[in-house]
Write a protein that binds this DNA or RNA. Sequence first.
DNA 1: TCCATTCATGAAAGCGCTTTCTTTTGGCGC
DNA 2: GCGCCAAAAGAAAGCGCTTTCATGAATGGA
Lengths: 346, 346
Amino acid sequence: MTIKPRAKIRIEEVARTAGVSAATVSRALNNPALVSPQLRAKVEKAAKKLGYVAHGAARALASRRSHALGAVVPTLGNTIFSDAIGAFQRRLEAENYTMLLATSDYDEEVEYRNVRTMIERGVDGLMLVGATHGKALYDLLEASGVPFVQTWAPAKASPYPTIGYDNTALTRIVVDHLAGLGHRDIGMVAGLRRNNDRVRARLVGMRAAMRRHRLPLPASRIVFTDYRIDAVRAAFREMQRRGPMPTALVANNDIVALGLMLEAQSQGIRVPRQLSIVGVGDLEVAAHLHPPLTTIRTPKQTIGTLAAEYLLARIHDRPVELPAELALELVLRGTTAPPPRKDKTV
Amino acid sequence: MTIKPRAKIRIEEVARTAGVSAATVSRALNNPALVSPQLRAKVEKAAKKLGYVAHGAARALASRRSHALGAVVPTLGNTIFSDAIGAFQRRLEAENYTMLLATSDYDEEVEYRNVRTMIERGVDGLMLVGATHGKALYDLLEASGVPFVQTWAPAKASPYPTIGYDNTALTRIVVDHLAGLGHRDIGMVAGLRRNNDRVRARLVGMRAAMRRHRLPLPASRIVFTDYRIDAVRAAFREMQRRGPMPTALVANNDIVALGLMLEAQSQGIRVPRQLSIVGVGDLEVAAHLHPPLTTIRTPKQTIGTLAAEYLLARIHDRPVELPAELALELVLRGTTAPPPRKDKTV
DNA sequence: TCCATTCATGAAAGCGCTTTCTTTTGGCGC
DNA sequence: GCGCCAAAAGAAAGCGCTTTCATGAATGGA
């Protein structure tokens, strides 16, 4: 049952066993084309036999390549990010890269520290969330020369490489839909703005869209919340407290939308008859809610995959281009309908 | 806007700037107690001024410590794991460790490769999910001498350090509850068993508990599914196809439970009047469903935190002890009730 | 006052690889 | 059969740190 922990094997010993030099072993393992088939076979056999596992740090030191990419996301508690990270990692794995992951909890300082640590660890590239970061971070990034890519924002949002969709457009699509249905009084249940340019962009887009439709959007129609269902329900009630409810609510994401539906239902408010709700993200449950949730499908996995591809390409000096922005899709389901007929004005 | 990428600073230059030797700089930065306050201050100032960032690989090579821990989990798509990973990472961060993360997608071979890669990268410790792995994996682990900890299983499940709760006990608790309510015909909607000893343990526990209550549990009462809601609903129908429905269903987790509730509702089956359902995990939504879900609360964050603590302790040669098993809590809510009165037998 | 300790510092030897540079080998044309 | 050149292999010099080990200064006991 217990295996004798054999001493660690260094390249030297593989070389001796195979009857070649360490240099040849290194080449055979990392760049087989440089070694004749016979020696290559010998080396491979010896390596396998001895259970040779290269020493990553030594390799990184000598080659100036860590074969590791870093990712810093706000949180793993949101499937939006964990899905993207999953896709990112799978892409890396396919290319034999390792992922370093850290979470910042929407804290700029923590993010800075994490990035610094990763640079220190020698990551070959870095994935960040959001297109607006502190100057200190950008300075650090530029000083280190590590390729990086920002995510969840369209390319135009930053002078630095960025990949994602346009959050401004997102709320525009939603408002267009709602206004098209006849809604004139639309509210928004937004996420917290702290270090979250996605939320900020959506607000901007919301305001602009409302203006285009010549619809009012007083501050009282916007309420902020984190993504705990309790908090969302409280936000719902907060909006009620501020005056008569809007006929439609734009949620920051599907979880928020779910919370709103839950609170509406428990108050006997009919969705969508009395109140329309739109989510964002198209989580799996969205389609299964009662009624099924109208939402915007966002390309989370694509973001992770493309981020990985971009970084890998940069590292290997392959040409890459980032899409200007990723497509969004309005998924029409059962939570939106024309507003109730105005029997009483305001 | 553009910062001139200053050349990378090596310890040598910090030493020169501070007017001391490289050895002193290293000591001042890593083990300040060994350096006199004056020199320490000088070094710190020089390091800050030059923006010195240590070279992790060189440091790892020289010190034989990577200051990185690895984690390999089946998937990030399940909050069970992403929450635990989040807690794990936060704990590491507090101690200035970095996390390497990889997902195996429940594939033993992928897991092996990932572990190998991490060992190669020189992780100081490793967190794994599950208490049963292939012999090859254990051999690798022992040969490398890297401390590791298994999770999501009780200590007794393995000769190796393991931290988690007892999945056998979990289903026992559920069955006890259901049987106590008067249910005699209980079904189980389990997860896929492939490389998943948690599911297998729950099956074992389920069978044992049913036996203790002298209740039958034919194979037809157990149906397997992955965690997509569509699949769960199909599983529900599959069970119906096999004969008259049980009066209670044990779900593999809250997502599965949700899927079951959804399907029941859409068929007009009343929960819990006609059908009791129990979940596992106590996800945040569980309390907000209609009716609120009876479920078992599992200590996911605790598992992540304790895993980190154990590993850190091992690395620093601090004494550690792992709890035999973590506590489970039955959260009674609205989806369980006595079975409908037997108007017609079987 | 002198020697034995202790403490802070510096010099230098690696850590285990990769990669340049050099040497050797072998293929091929004449 | 000889010489030339390309390809393959080896020797050795680092990569940028940490950590022994050695040294010198400072302290204290006799």
